[in-house]
Design a protein around this nucleic acid. Structure first.
Ligand SMILES: [Zn+2]
Ligand SMILES: [Zn+2]
Ligand SMILES: [Zn+2]
Ligand SMILES: [Zn+2]
Lengths: 184, 184
DNA sequence: CTCCGCACTGTTATAACATAACAGTCTGCC
DNA sequence: GGCAGACTGTTATGTTATAACAGTGCGGAG
């Protein structure tokens, strides 16, 4: 919610605040039906600093609508967004994150920060080629491939390095827990 | 349960039937405590043709013990096996599979067959190097990496190719559902 | 215009996956 | 004996996801 715009190699703007608007344009262009409900869920993603669990979305939605929303409503919306590649599921977190590379037929590697809970989607043509090659070598024909890494994002890694340099702090900065409805 | 021994590049025997015995040896060598309960769970893995969900293990265990077993019993056993690298969790399936590369400090890619439900663990030094490089390029410091592929294993791919060649069968061979407690 | 199908949403109930918290047992050590 | 630690049992509950069916609104065929 504090972070905006980070430049990447691919050159596209990943400003979370404009995520919903960009998806909206994409839908208009492709004749895909972006209903009010779906749009509200996109807004919720736009306003989040990290991946969201289905039930976190459910709560945000309930707050926004002023009345209780049921799980299938959320899961159906997520199905729609997943099918169209507007969001990705992070399996190791049971959470969902907005796609940061809308439009590219990217094959993304998801990197999740253990410290701040944010996720980022890294372009990785080389990784996917390596995986395809390895799979082919064993006779396996992949249809979908998922790569998820956990570790420290640049910001958190730098902050931690600084902390240890200053006062030899052994405790990990994990009091800064995940920003939104996911645990583990 | 029908399949035995498949030879791989790495040269180690992956016979599921001997999985429990091999883990047992490993524990004896390392002074790790392999209790009867843990051993029974290993046996259950040995007797399975594919990944097992926690509740599938629970049921198998309950049957074997003759009395109802509770979830924590299973999850604690799985924790033990995971910690020691004897089994892996397949996040995209919420299921667990025996390690096929006991002993190697492997970094495995898990390949799950959509048709027969089996999983295999493929060695992939190159993939892990590519991932590390990609991550480094974006400033991310990975601690753990997960690679999961879904598609067709060699056997199923061949069978399907044969089927389509013979009578132009459009229906996927998905009636041959997953072998054990997992869906999706 | 009417009827129908289709896409979307609402609602209730339940399935599937996972953990918290506390109690009991056994074993080895002081 | 008394105690600590590792393991297991037990009860209850939390979290994630889906099944099944009902209602609504809209556009096109007849
Ligand atoms: Zn993406
Ligand atoms: Zn971070
Ligand atoms: Zn392994
Ligand atoms: Zn197969």
């Amino acid at each position: 919610m504090l972070e905006t715009k980070t430049e990447r190699v691919c050159g596209c703007a990943h400003d979370p605040a404009t995520f919903a608007a960009r998806v909206e344009q994409s839908c208009a262009r492709d004749g895909v039906q972006l209903t009010p409900l779906r749009r509200r869920v996109l807004d919720i993603f736009s306003g989040s600093a990290g991946p969201l669990g289905a039930y976190a979305i459910l709560e945000a939605l309930s707050r926004r609508e002023g009345k209780q929303v049921a799980p299938p409503t959320v899961y159906r919306t997520l199905d729609f967004l997943l099918e169209h590649g507007f969001v990705h599921k992070i399996e190791s977190l049971n959470a969902y994150a907005p796609c940061e590379h809308l439009g590219h037929a990217h094959h993304g590697m998801l990197a999740v920060c253990d410290a701040c809970g944010r996720s980022e989607e890294i372009e990785d043509e080389a990784v996917m080629r390596a995986i395809a090659a390895t799979a082919a070598g064993s006779g396996f024909m992949p249809r979908t491939v998922m790569v998820e890494a956990k570790g420290l994002c640049r910001r958190c890694a730098e902050r931690e390095a600084g902390a240890t340099a200053h006062h030899r702090n052994p405790g990990v900065a994990s009091s800064t827990s995940a920003p939104s409805g996911s645990r583990k």
